[in-house]
Design a protein around this nucleic acid. Structure first.
Lengths: 153, 153
DNA sequence: TTTAATTGACTTTCTTTGACTTTAATTATA
DNA sequence: TATAATTAAAGTCAAAGAAAGTCAATTAAA
């Protein structure tokens, strides 16, 4: 039996489809009323089914005229380059290696000069302040995140 | 439903656009009357949507013949935009604020859509894994780093 | 018996409104 | 003419209202 969370998930996905899978904007209280559930149920659905891992991301505003915006990333995981890169980066990566990948992306014209500068800036040790020794993990997360948005269809 | 603040924001942005995004001059009471809101609502809109973070600044005069002038930072080459931004970002910044700045940079054509996506990806909470609670500091470092490379030449 | 879903009380953030203050320009008065 | 009074703006601030976020306790499902 489908839970109310599943029903709400489906509802959002249908809305997104109607909107060519770009972006939808909802009012939490409206949706909650419509499905006769508690408002925080909506947050639960978003958290568990519309996070970055699932290929969505959420923005919102509180107060009068507040809203929740769901954006579909539609990362194209089928592109071999993308898949290979994510795998190569893995869970941690050193600065040199990261820069090598960025350079290659630029050389093969996946990204512009400027784009590569931005990405390299985010790979710098001075920028990745981190009390524990998890710089390389952080760098991997960042690089994978940035590359993923690049390969959107 | 868009708040009245959103509507007024849009109104000013359209006026600015008609004026090649340089400067506009308005009368607070006129605008308030036009949108049937309290005059201080105008100040609220200016404070929250036309501050330096958003790439604008405000001048005004009280009394007879008083006015409010909105200037796009971009139009004012006496102020190095990135200096102002770096200062504004400071040592830590929340995701919402960061995204605001990125959006403004895109709107004012300092950066492309793709560049803004890359930067936003690096601002995500899920990406900024951090054992201690220093996400906002990390984000500030990253954003400042990326902005710096964009404005160097 | 561990994981997932539901609920609701409480918190935080953003917007709206209005009463009161300050400043500038104009008009009236000594 | 110099000053005072009046009027015409804009500024400030705090209270009330509107919406979303958080978190922990319970309940249901696997």
């Amino acid at each position: 039996m489908a839970s109310i969370s599943d029903v709400i998930e489906k509802f959002f996905k249908e809305l997104l489809e109607q909107n060519q899978g770009k972006t939808i904007q909802i009012q939490r209280n409206e949706v909650a009323k419509h499905f006769d559930c508690s408002p925080s149920q909506i947050n639960y659905v978003l958290m568990t089914r519309f996070n970055v891992q699932h290929g969505y991301y959420i923005e919102s505003r509180r107060g009068g005229g507040g809203f929740i915006k769901i954006t579909m990333l539609r990362a194209d995981n089928s592109q071999p380059v993308h898949r290979v890169l994510l795998k190569e980066i893995g869970s941690e990566i050193a600065k040199t290696q990261a820069n090598r990948i960025i350079k290659a992306l630029n050389e093969q014209q996946y990204i512009s000069e400027r784009e590569s500068s931005i990405m390299k800036a985010a790979m710098e040790d001075q920028v990745l302040i981190s009390p524990l020794n998890n710089r390389d993990q952080l760098r991997a997360q960042l690089l994978k995140g940035m590359i993923t948005v690049l390969f959107q269809r």
